[in-house]
Amino acid sequence: MVVTPSHQYPLGASMPAARRLELLGWARAHGALVVEDDYDSELRYVGEPLPALAALDRAPGADDGGHVATLGSFTKVLAPGLGVGYLLPPPALREELLRLRTDLGNPASAVAQDALARFLAAGGLRRHTARMRREYRRRRDLLAAALAGTAGVRAVPMDGGLHAVLEFTGEVPLEEQDVVDRAAAAGVRVAALGTYWAEGSRGSRRGVVVGFGASGDAAGDDALPDALEVLAGVLARPSGTA
C-alpha cells in the first residue's frame, strides 16, 4: 500500500496519529508493506509535526519494524536540479535493494551527494527548512486574506504544502474550466480540482488548485500579490458572463 500521510494532494489532509497506528496494525496483521511517500512533511505550518510511519514502526515496543518503507526527496525542499532522493527500507529488504541499486547504476551525482551530506551534517537543512516554513506560511496567509469574502469560494484549510484549494460553494455559478481559462488568459495558471479525481469517479467537489511555491522572479520580486488580485477578479465574475 502506498500512502502520503503527511500531506495528501490536492486536498491537503494529514493522517492523524491514531489512524497511522491503525494502518500499522493492519500491515502487521496481514504481513503487508506500507510505502510511505514523505511528501511535504517538512512544510507543516500548524501544530506539532506528526510522527512518520517508519518511526512508529520502529519505535521501542514495536515488533520487528519491517512493515514500512519511506520515500523522500530533497528536490522540493532544496532545489529542483539537485536530483537526490532517499529510501529508508525495512532492515530485511536493505541488502536486496542495495544490490539492485548497484545493478541499475547511480543516477545521482556523487558530487551532489557529498555536498548534501556535508550540508545535512552542518545543520543547514534544519535552518533552511525553518526559513521555508516562515516564508510559505506568509504566502499561504496572504492568499487566504486576499480571497477572503469572495462570494461562492471557500479556501480549504491547509496545514502545510505549497498550494491551496479554492472550492466553489455553488452560491455563484463558477465553472472550473472557465475559471482556469480566464485566469490563464490573464497570466495566472491554476488547475481544475476535478482533474484530480480518478477517471470514472468524479466527485461532487469543484474548484481550482492554486500553487504559491514559485511566485518570484530572478530579481526576488514577489509576484504573488498581483497574481492573487488577478485571480480575485476572475472569481468575482460568474461563468457565462461577458
Rank of each mutant, 00 (worst) to 15 (best):
V2T: 07
S6F: 14
S6R: 13
H7S: 10
P10Q: 06
M15Y: 01
M15E: 00
P16Q: 01
L23K: 02
W26R: 15
R28L: 09
R28I: 03
A29M: 03
H30E: 14
Y39A: 07
Y39C: 09
D40K: 13
L43I: 03
Y45T: 08
Y45C: 06
Y45V: 04
G47A: 12
E48L: 11
L53H: 05
A54K: 05
A55H: 07
P60C: 07
H67T: 14
L71A: 06
S73G: 03
T75V: 02
K76P: 00
V77G: 01
L78Q: 12
L78A: 06
A79D: 15
G81Y: 08
G81D: 13
L82G: 00
L82R: 07
G83D: 11
G83R: 07
Y86G: 06
L87Y: 05
L88D: 15
L88M: 11
P90K: 04
P91A: 15
R94D: 13
E95V: 08
L97V: 10
R99K: 09
L104V: 03
G105E: 07
G105A: 05
P107C: 04
V111K: 10
V111H: 09
A115S: 14
L116V: 13
L116G: 13
R118H: 12
L120K: 12
L120C: 13
G123S: 10
G123H: 11
T129P: 05
R134Q: 15
R137L: 15
R140Q: 15
R140K: 12
D141H: 04
L142C: 08
L142D: 12
A144Q: 12
L147H: 04
A148G: 14
A148Q: 15
A148M: 09
G149N: 10
G149E: 07
G149P: 10
T150N: 09
T150S: 12
A151P: 06
V153K: 14
A155W: 01
V156P: 03
P157S: 10
D159F: 00
A164I: 03
F168R: 13
V172Y: 01
V172L: 13
Q177W: 05
D178Y: 04
V179Q: 12
R182M: 08
A184M: 11
A185W: 05
A186S: 14
G187F: 00
R189E: 14
A191M: 09
L193I: 00
L193G: 00
L193F: 13
L193N: 01
G194D: 07
G200W: 11
R205I: 00
G207S: 03
G211W: 02
G213W: 03
A214K: 12
A214L: 08
D217L: 08
G220N: 10
A223W: 02
L228H: 12
E229Y: 00
A232P: 02
G233N: 03
G233F: 01
V234A: 08
A236Q: 08
G240R: 09
G240F: 11
T241I: 00
